[in-house]
Amino acid sequence: MLANFGALVRKDLILELRSGRLFLELVTLSLLILVVLLIAYGPSGSRHGAFAAAAVWVAMVFSALPASRLALAAEGDNDCIKGLILSPVDPATVYAAKTSVVALSMTAGAMITLALSILLFNLELSMRLARLIPVLLLGTVGLAALGTLLGTMTMRLELGDVMLALLGTPLYVPALIAGISASIDLLNGASLWACGPPLKVLLAWDLLFGTCGCLLYEYLVS
């Protein structure tokens, strides 16, 4: 199973590196969101930590849906998804590999958004920013898990993109509330332990959709 997982992740990473489309789309979108927020709130102010946290999360949410769609696009090419269904690979492994690649791309995108936020919002480089990393990682894993699940459900629909957004928006709300509140607290100086409750919500959300994906993927692709 691990060998299959490795082979599928390698394949998706090669495809992503060759096209670079997913990563480029994430970075462009993040930059656009940050610039809009910067114009709206100006280059200086007392609540920049909150804006930066919000910007990173907005960028992550907006990038999760296209990221999942793009990651699945390769499987529609030449009916490759049928090749995977007919091969002796556990569908849960296919799901886990897809989610991992989407999460990796989103993590790279989130890190670049964070770096751009530091520059654009004049944030002080300190340990506070480093503390954001676990929160963002938990967020990207959950968003990737849910995005891959919903992306597979809607990939063959004519209005797949619309359905993806309609289904995804309400399901993202708990993660957004937990993720944004934890990020703001951390940027305002709270310790990681003090943000325990929202982090637990994020972890539970990741486990819920990760498990759902592993259990349901077989039915979704067949």
């Binding site: 394949k11 495809l15 060759r18 090419d77 030449n78 490759c80 049928k82 090749g83 007919l86």
Partner: peptide, 15 residues
Amino acid sequence: RIGVMLHKSMLYSKL
């Protein structure tokens, strides 16, 4: 134990 070839090649075009 089963080999399948369908109308489309099931090959990744960018590999």
